[in-house]
Design a protein around this nucleic acid. Structure first.
Length: 479
RNA sequence: GGCGGGUUCGUCUAGUGGCCAAGGACGUCUGGUUUUCAACCAGAAAAUCACGGGUUCGACUCCCGUACCCGCUACCA
């Protein structure tokens, strides 16, 4: 059996790595690793207009953050370098010409203006817009002359006007297209860069990609790719079109309707493992041969929370579902909270310190962490949950009960700051002045933190220290 | 419009002809625990399995049609 090789091919046309790409990369990565194969990253930077400077670096950096390790890529090289399409132009030009020689493609001199007119005419006649093939049968000599004269040209795929192109998809079975309905795609643009269609085929072939795992949106261009493979006499890879992630309204996931950049999730304090776990829940589950009643059937060990390696052990492309799932931030937050709660104390304080770019030391974070750990859904929640440890309250969500506070101060002044002792004294005091113990704790909470909801107040006061706690109480009384 | 893909609780999903008067998870709601909030525990509501026809002793599961949703329809990927 040949070595499995998969790839993700992002375009540096966005701010950062798109979460949909993270999803597709995850599928490719897990599949390759499950089969002891290689996973590679190829940068498809052929759209010079939409290119965003720095995007590539940010994309690669995001992959590293996720721990999606690639065996070959633009920055680390590999046996089939370069891994950046802009550095492989000669290759595409060579194969485009070969395609022309084999009559599977042709030179086209139609200008954008001509094409626009063509389309307008077709639309007004209620025809399906497509390239009408007017350059398809240009004589070789004429073509040569026009090219030599410096006229701009593109190379288009010559699609047969009869027959059908069929391919097998691992998730969806056989899919067929009528050739006459396939447009004569541009393969090589007038700037000498290939379009996606030429680029993928050439590179996937040259880089020995065995499984093309990508999103559903590529299904309709696959027949064009097949035509190229066949014309060049190349073996087809295995095609697998997974689901496409959707916005809550079910349209294709987009930045207008849902956060999409990996960097956004990082800044929000989502953990990469949690995001990957969440993503793996979408569109993938194993056949539940044993009906696991009462559990999440179809998930590793019947649980929705599982690691990347647990996913790897069980992953099969055939188990992917064709249905596009809606991205649900709420569930991601829950999962992230689970990961936070299950983190080791040291790991979490180190992650938090890192998250806040060392603004807080691990030690400082460690002091209050156990009090707020269960209350965090995202790393970014920590600051807001602990601000009163760093600053005296300036405003009060609820006015502290002065009467109760006045009574607590002398008791606390005389008390050692130890949990059991303090709690006992406060309860006794409550009984003495005939109020509920909860009222005493709430009065203290309001005064000490300015908030209505905080971790247990006695423990909070102990961390704050006797002196600081009393100052805060006295200040409230004074005002 | 054409072509392609899809359709089980609000969302993610289990289900491959009888075990399903449909199971789990998130969310929602109720109760418990509790010093408030979380966390935790217990429970509830929530899908006429898109709809209509077949096939079959029997269909969420197979077939056909309809509706709706999504994708593609660029010298963007």
């Amino acid at each position: 059996m040949t070595m499995v090789r998969t790839r993700i091919a992002p375009s540096p046309t966005g701010e950062n790595l798109h979460i949909g790409n993270v999803y597709t990369a995850l599928l490719n990565y897990v599949f390759a690793k499950k089969n002891q194969g290689q996973f590679i990253i190829r940068i498809e930077d052929t759209d010079r207009q939409r290119l965003i400077p720095g995007s590539e670096e940010r994309i690669l950096e995001s992959f590293r953050w996720f721990g999606i390790n690639y065996d070959e890529g633009p920055d680390i090289g590999g046996p089939f370098a370069p891994y950046r399409q802009s550095e492989r132009l000669l290759l595409y030009q060579k194969y485009a010409k070969e395609l022309v020689e084999k009559k599977a493609a042709y030179y086209c001199f139609c200008t954008p203006e001509i094409l626009e007119k063509m389309k307008a005419g077709q639309v007004s006649r209620k025809e399906i817009p497509h390239y009408d093939g007017r350059c398809k049968n240009l004589e070789a000599k004429v073509v040569e002359k026009r090219v030599k004269s410096g006229e701009k040209y593109v190379i288009r795929l010559s699609v047969p006007d009869s027959g059908t192109t069929v391919f097998h998809d691992l998730v969806r079975g056989d899919i067929s297209f009528e050739n006459k309905l396939i447009d004569d795609q541009v393969l090589l643009k007038s700037d000498g860069y290939p379009t996606y269609h030429l680029g993928v085929v050439v590179d996937d072939y040259l880089m020995k990609i065995t499984h093309v795992i990508r999103a559903e949106e590529w299904i309709s261009s696959t027949p064009k790719h097949i035509l190229i493979y066949k014309a060049l006499g190349w073996n087809l890879p295995i095609f697998c079109h997974g689901p496409i992630l959707r916005n809550p309204d079910k349209s294709k996931l987009s930045k207008r309707k849902n956060p999409v950049w990996a960097s956004w999730y990082k800044e929000q304090g989502f953990l990469p493992e949690a995001i990957l776990n969440y993503l793996s829940l979408m569109g993938w589950s194993m056949p539940a041969s044993v009906p696991l009643s009462g559990t999440s059937a179809g998930k590793p060990n019947g649980k929705e929370i599982f690691s990347l390696s647990e996913m790897m052990e069980n992953f099969r492309l055939e188990d992917l579902k064709p249905v596009g799932p809606a991205f649900d931030l709420t569930k991601l937050e829950w999962l992230n909270g689970e990961y936070i709660r299950n983190s080791k104390f040291e790991t979490l304080s180190s992650k938090l310190s890192e998250f806040y770019q060392k603004k807080y030391s691990e030690e400082e974070i460690g002091k209050t962490l156990s009090l707020v750990k269960d209350r965090m859904k995202k790393l970014s929640d920590w600051e807001g949950l602990t601000d009163f440890f760093r600053e005296r309250p300036k405003t009060f969500e609820e006015k502290p009960d002065q009467k109760i506070l006045t009574k607590t101060i002398p008791v606390l002044e005389k008390s050692v700051f130890e949990k059991d002792v303090m709690e006992k004294k406060m309860r006794e005091l409550a009984a003495e002045i005939n109020v509920k113990a909860g009222d005493v704790f709430m009065a203290l909470r309001n005064a000490i933190t300015g908030k209505k909801a905080t971790p247990p107040i006695i423990e909070t006061m102990i961390i704050l220290g006797k002196k600081e706690s009393l100052i805060r109480l006295q200040q409230v009384i004074k005002n």
